[in-house]
């Protein structure tokens, strides 16, 4: 996994609540057996005016000019500003894969759906929960100022605006450590292989039918 330490990135505001993972990456792209290449299909139905198919060359597809991701001022954005319950619905990890492949490393929203939130950490994306008031204020500043960037410092757990205002965010120490160091979670878990084996033996003795 890619490590995340600090980022000073352009912000793209997506002003919709309950953005679901079907909207983030539509089902036809889930037929891929690969883990990469989903970026051009991110928000496919909102982003293009024609129907997207896997393998399509997106550089020649007609764009929906009204969609934020297509506006020149947000090209190269690395911070996605979103509304409540971002990433709800399907567990598809293709959603964070597409977001990361598009170049986003941070998502800021008042709330996230649980599975999506968890999937972000597995892919070097930092999801930040901020208060509704804070998010409102970021939306206003971002829309009013072209080239609006945010500075995100994971070690300090602080987001700083261009005017120098800042707010802190929560993250569990385990997630922070893994993200800062880009650690392979499976490798870490396998350090507990003896504990897993011991648990398994005890569990099997108590409920043998689970192992039949």
């Amino acid at each position: 996994m890619k490590a995340f330490t600090t980022l000073n990135g352009l912000v793209c505001p997506l002003d919709r609540a309950n953005v679901d993972t079907d909207a983030i990456i539509p089902k036809q792209f889930l037929k891929s057996i690969k883990r990469s290449g989903f970026g051009p299909y991110l928000f496919d139905e909102w982003r293009y005016t024609n129907y997207g198919e896997p393998g399509m060359d997106c550089s020649t597809r007609p764009l929906n000019k009204d969609f934020v991701l297509n506006q020149p001022r947000y090209q190269g954005a690395q911070v996605l500003l979103a509304r409540d319950n971002f990433g709800c619905g399907s567990s598809r990890e293709h959603a964070p894969w597409a977001i990361e492949d598009q170049g986003f490393r941070v998502i800021i929203a008042p709330s996230f759906a649980d599975i999506f939130f968890n999937n972000c950490y597995k892919n070097g994306i930092l999801p930040i929960v901020a208060s509704s008031e804070q998010v409102d204020s970021l939306f206003k500043e971002c829309l009013a100022n072209e080239g609006y960037t945010l500075n995100v410092d994971l070690e300090a757990q602080v987001v700083t605006t261009p005017s120098g205002q800042s707010f802190s965010f929560d993250i569990t120490p385990t997630r922070k450590h893994n993200l800062l160091n880009g650690l392979d979670e499976i490798g870490l878990t396998l350090q507990h292989a003896d504990a897993i084996k011991a648990f398994e033996q005890k569990h099997q003795a108590a409920q043998p039918w689970l192992f039949a």
Partner: peptide
């Protein structure tokens, strides 16, 4: 019973465990 992402599918395949916090 709950849904997981593909990285977690791999984690469960490899370790028979899931990294989780109590809800």
């Amino acid at each position: 019973a709950h849904g997981i992402g593909t990285s977690e599918v791999e984690h469960v395949l490899a370790t028979q465990t899931l990294v989780a916090k109590k809800s």
